[in-house]
Design a protein around this nucleic acid. Sequence first.
DNA 1: AGCAAAGAGGTCAATTCATGTCCTCAATCC
DNA 2: GGATTGAGGACATGAATTGACCTCTTTGCT
Lengths: 324, 324
Amino acid sequence: MSTSARMLQLLSLLQTHRYWPGGELAARLEVTPRTLRRDIERLRDLGYAVDAVRGVAGGYQLQPGGSLPPLLLEDDEAVAIAVGLQNAAAGVVAGLEDTSLQALTKVVALMPPKLRRRMEALTSQTEPAPWGRGPTIDAEVLTTLAQACRDHEPLTFTYTARAAEPTHRRTEPHRLVTLGRRWYLVAWDRDREDWRSFRVDRIADVRTSGQRFRVRELPAADALTFVREGISRMPQRYAVRVRFACPTEQVSATVGRWATVEPVTPRAGEEAACLMTMPTETLDWPMFALANTDAEFTVEEPAELREALARVAERFSRAAAPGA
Amino acid sequence: MSTSARMLQLLSLLQTHRYWPGGELAARLEVTPRTLRRDIERLRDLGYAVDAVRGVAGGYQLQPGGSLPPLLLEDDEAVAIAVGLQNAAAGVVAGLEDTSLQALTKVVALMPPKLRRRMEALTSQTEPAPWGRGPTIDAEVLTTLAQACRDHEPLTFTYTARAAEPTHRRTEPHRLVTLGRRWYLVAWDRDREDWRSFRVDRIADVRTSGQRFRVRELPAADALTFVREGISRMPQRYAVRVRFACPTEQVSATVGRWATVEPVTPRAGEEAACLMTMPTETLDWPMFALANTDAEFTVEEPAELREALARVAERFSRAAAPGA
DNA sequence: AGCAAAGAGGTCAATTCATGTCCTCAATCC
DNA sequence: GGATTGAGGACATGAATTGACCTCTTTGCT
């Protein structure tokens, strides 16, 4: 085995176990202990913190150092990472979408096909968050887009705008942005000769040509504002406003960060009161929040929520009726 | 620079961009193009699929090959991976807890302290799943335990059993198991001289001595059964059973994999019917499911759910009342 | 069609590097 | 104190690496 290959293997071995007796490492690498010591020295020169314990039952271990060493992952671990990152990119971990996507792109781009298939299989059976994260995105599509943006490769895909026939698009991808649990691709449409933003979950059959294009300048402050401006002209979602007759904490404990809760002045006979504001696309999740806060409330907006509540109340009382 | 270091750097460069003109790579590595070609050849010999595009504007790119190359991650990416994995280990992605933990252990063990701090900071502000995943676990505790189990290192920690004073424990960790969104450590308690299972979220102040111990044999088929036997003597949760007057698909679309839904024979006047069975600790989530399936249903078990439904129905109808 | 750019790769000589052997020293545990 | 295990210097041998120079092929551009 060549020296470089051996160094990689040594790093890999050091990552799987905490302690490695020098003799055992030397045997695994099929070199003399002296050479092993030299290899360890080389690793140290490269900046990796290899600790050694002397004496009986001594050995080597890889310590956290100044920088992260190259990670040598087992197949299963790589799949776990990909699935975890996909979740994170989908917005489960707020604020880390971009970075997660970046890491995901790197991992997916290098994953052998069999691992990719395993990942796909696992993702499809992953439960989407109960409050409806919206349509699931395909990791492969997303990472392909990210890569094309990064490397300025032209993209073609079919796009199915809502309530419309699928259309074929030839684009120069510019950037991916995430906005309210959704991913959008900002790209120059070569046929329409204009900038467009595409919802990633409506993109399919992505193909890169392998070419590269010259970057154009986006006629907006940045990609995010471009998308936001485009969306603001779209039909609006719900803007839920609910008034609770209980302290702020009780509500925010349930709805967490997805809604803003502010205290308001309580009316006569109330201990405390607060107002929950929550932009949302579906009414499931606000209803869940309402069910779980054990407090009286009134719906200020929207009327649809009031109707939905009435329907649920009826079904629930029928189900809870003793005769049922 | 040594050859091995250069190979690692080359791999790293190839991972950051898709295309690299050979000349640029050679310049970065401070070698002649000929040597670069030889390095590329070496990488190929190591099993990495380096593609090349010839001709004008040609270059190299790293393709997915037979195995995953050593991942060279940026700091941010590593943090994103750690956070994503922690989520996955916490049970967001069912069925991947073990592997995620394994990968997380590897990443955390090698993360420089500054990254670890960034990870901790991010995790703490991560929103726990809305339906209550239970107490959050500390990634560092969890990975330390995992490492100690793997490497047979004695562990000491303080354990706070429920409604009891914290106690100091000296243990020989055996295995971590996950059961119903919780992590348990199965370990030999050196002071009590017996096997115990500890809930990880109640463990604090973990310390490893760096020693190693001789493994004992667990008096059970495996660690999972050991924990399960211990838990089965604990107070029971709810076993929800609800009958819907709608097709199976309509229900399973909402509750997904957290509940089993089986078709049952419909009564007179019903199109279809099914039975949902769902073991749970809190009633929030089944209520959410019930609200979202747009179908009539009856609660067979437990009585508490019926009562909770009645309470919610009342509050909801009050809130939906026109006078409100 | 022809040309320039860029990768593939053979050959060779000079040089560098890696290896194993043998040695002494320094911790560490029993 | 002795055994074990890592650290590391010295040295001879042999293998690997490098750069220079060359030819060939592919590709895009004019």
